[in-house]
Each structure stands twice: as structure tokens, then as C-alpha cells.
Simulated assay, not measured.
Amino acid sequence: MDFVTSDRTQRFVIEPVLGGRAFEDFGDGEGLVWYTVIGVDAGRELVLAGHLLPPFGGPATTALRVTLSAQADGTLVKIRDDRFGILGGDSPVEGWRIVFDGGLRHYLESESANS
């Protein structure tokens, strides 16, 4: 995994339900929560709120919106990451590309191939 905070990370999880979490799972009940899910429109949109800690470019608050829309050749995923506070470090664009285009796309395509 290229876009995680620890070499102990076993998986990155997004729980797509109100109050769910987006987090790194280190195993044995350990990890790091990135976001809490504050909005769900099933099959269309997830809205998440989180904190950007100083080691990762903060301190700041972040609001992430993941929108899905059907296209003739698949599904278009749009990401909007609004951050406010003391911002440092790199833009989140490449990181989200790794998470969603690399990770999620790879997972969905491998699941589709196994069906």
C-alpha cells in the first residue's frame, strides 16, 4: 500500500454507513481513523469529516466528498477534499488517486473477474 501512515497497515477500510469510519487497520484493534462518515446517499455519494494531524500536513480539518455517477463504460468517481486550518505538505490529489484509482479500481476489477 502506497498511501498509508504506517508500515504496520494491513488494510485501508471505508465503512459506507452513517457514523462509519475510513481508517487504516494495523491489526489487533490498532490503527488510525482518517474520517467519520457524515453523509450517505447509497450508490451516489459519501461525505466524510476528518482531521489532518501535524505529521501529515496539519493541524487542519478536512471534508471529503466522494461522488459516483454512472457512465456508458463504467462509473465515474469524483473526489472533493476541502481542507482548512494550518496546511502543509503535498496536495492530497495524488494520494486520493492512489487510494481510489489504484486501490479501489484494482479491488473492484479483481472482484468482477472472480464473479
Rank of each mutant, 00 (worst) to 15 (best):
W96P: 01
G74V: 03
H51Q: 11
S91T: 02
F56W: 09
G29F: 01
V77R: 05
H106K: 13
H106W: 12
A72V: 09
V99K: 06
S110C: 08
G27L: 10
V4W: 10
T67Q: 03
R97W: 02
Q71P: 04
L32P: 03
V99D: 15
I98R: 01
T9C: 15
L64S: 12
D41H: 00
R8V: 04
R80S: 13
R80C: 11
F84L: 01
P59F: 15
A42F: 02
D7Y: 05
R105C: 02
G95P: 12
F84N: 00
S112L: 04
I38D: 00
N114H: 09
R21L: 14
F56Q: 07
T75D: 14
F100N: 08
A72F: 09
V40N: 13
F12T: 13
N114C: 08
L32C: 07
D82C: 14
E94Y: 02
L108K: 05
P54I: 02
V33C: 06
F26D: 00
S6R: 14
E15N: 03
D90F: 07
E30S: 05
R44S: 09
E94A: 14
H51Y: 09
G50P: 05
L68S: 04
F12Y: 04
S91P: 00
R21C: 11
R105H: 01
E109V: 00
V13P: 02
S112R: 03
R8N: 08
R44H: 05
L18F: 11
W34E: 15
R8Q: 15
P16D: 15
G19R: 04
V17D: 13
Q71A: 15
R80E: 13
G102P: 07
L53F: 11
L32W: 08
D101I: 06
L46K: 00
E45G: 07
L46V: 04
P59H: 14
G20E: 03
L87E: 09
E30V: 04
L46D: 03
Y35G: 01
D7M: 08
V66L: 05
V47Y: 14
E15C: 02
W96K: 06
I38Y: 00
G102S: 11
G88R: 05
D41T: 03
F84C: 00
L68W: 01
S69C: 13
R80I: 07
Q71D: 10
L18W: 14
P59Y: 15
W34L: 15
G85L: 11
E111D: 14
R105Y: 00
D2N: 12
G74N: 06
V13F: 01
R8Y: 05
A63C: 13
L53I: 08
L52P: 01
D7H: 11
D25P: 06
L52V: 10
V77N: 05
L46R: 00
L32R: 05
V99L: 15
K78W: 05
L87H: 05
V4C: 04
A60G: 12
N114L: 06
E109M: 00
G39R: 13
